[in-house]
Simulated scan of single mutants.
Amino acid sequence: MEWQDEGIILGVRRHGENNVIAEIMTRARGRHLGLVRGGRSRRMQPVLQPGNSVSVTWRARLDQHLGTYQVEPTQLRAARLMESATAVYGVQAMAALLRLLPERDSHPHLYEALGVILENLHEPAGAGELFVRFELAMLEDLGFGLDLLQCAATGRRDDLEYVSPKSGRAVSRAAGEPWADKMLPLPAFLAQGSRLSADEATLSQAFELTGFFLRRHVYEPRGLDIPDARAGFINAALKALSAEA
């Protein structure tokens, strides 16, 4: 069997003396592993760095086999991504999220989003917003999507202020006020049609929102902790925003 695709390196692990197993988020085939012969060579090590875009050819006798990759670079970002804490932690945190998906499941929109965020990790404010939306997309693909479009109680699409921790649905200011202390705040920049940008306070709220549902529905049922890279990214992004204020 053989196929060709484009992908983004998520990580590698050593396999034998000179080879590595590469974990690549591909456009058409999702997160996919494969053996790269000579992956520890001087020529290949700079290519097989997390965040780099590559063109890959995968070959195996049977579809269920690990298979081998032939990898060619198309965009080498890794050196630039090492220049800031936001970028370093961001790459690690997104890779950790994508590992929650079954291997070889196609998620082309997540592949596209990954590429966009990698190009914007040097801008903490924009990167923070994009990352939150990436987490929301992950929750959707894992079957736990939030409904932030209309009020769960009234159906209103305006003046949405809260998110119900039970249903993951938006709630308007008036409907949610009696239970405000039990609600999660809905950051204004996540409201439908909002043209607002995140500031330090609303970005922090947004990460609390996605973190709550990721922990409840994804990490805790699997007996996992939220990766430290996520906290590192959040701290770096908020610190950068604070410095800009």
Rank of each mutant, 00 (worst) to 15 (best):
G30S: 05
I8W: 07
L33N: 11
A28S: 14
G16N: 08
M25N: 04
R31L: 08
R29P: 00
I8R: 09
G16C: 07
A28C: 08
V36W: 02
G34M: 09
A28H: 13
R27D: 03
I9Q: 08
R14A: 14
R37E: 14
R27Y: 11
R37C: 05
V36P: 02
G16F: 12
I24V: 15
V12M: 10
R29M: 00
E23G: 06
M25E: 02
I21W: 13
I21H: 08
E17V: 12
E17F: 01
E23I: 05
V20G: 10
M25D: 00
G11I: 02
G34E: 02
G34C: 10
T26R: 04
R14W: 01
G16P: 03
N18Y: 11
R31V: 14
R14S: 14
R14E: 15
A22T: 01
G30N: 06
G30R: 05
H32K: 00
G34D: 01
H15E: 13
G11Q: 08
G16K: 01
L35D: 06
L33M: 07
E17C: 02
L33V: 00
V20F: 10
R13C: 11
V36L: 13
H32Q: 12
R13W: 15
I8S: 03
G30W: 05
G34W: 05
N18A: 15
G34H: 06
E17G: 03
T26E: 01
N19A: 15
G30Y: 09
I24H: 11
R27M: 03
A22D: 02
A22V: 02
L33S: 14
G16Y: 04
N18S: 15
L10I: 12
E23P: 01
I8V: 15
N19R: 07
R37T: 05
A22Y: 07
M25T: 00
T26A: 11
I9V: 15
I21D: 14
H15I: 02
G11V: 06
H32E: 03
V20W: 06
H32C: 11
R31W: 04
E23V: 11
M25H: 05
H32S: 13
T26P: 06
R31N: 04
R31Y: 05
N19Y: 07
H15K: 13
R13S: 14
I9K: 02
H32W: 06
V36Y: 03
N18M: 07
E23L: 14
N19Q: 10
G16W: 04
R27W: 03
R31S: 04
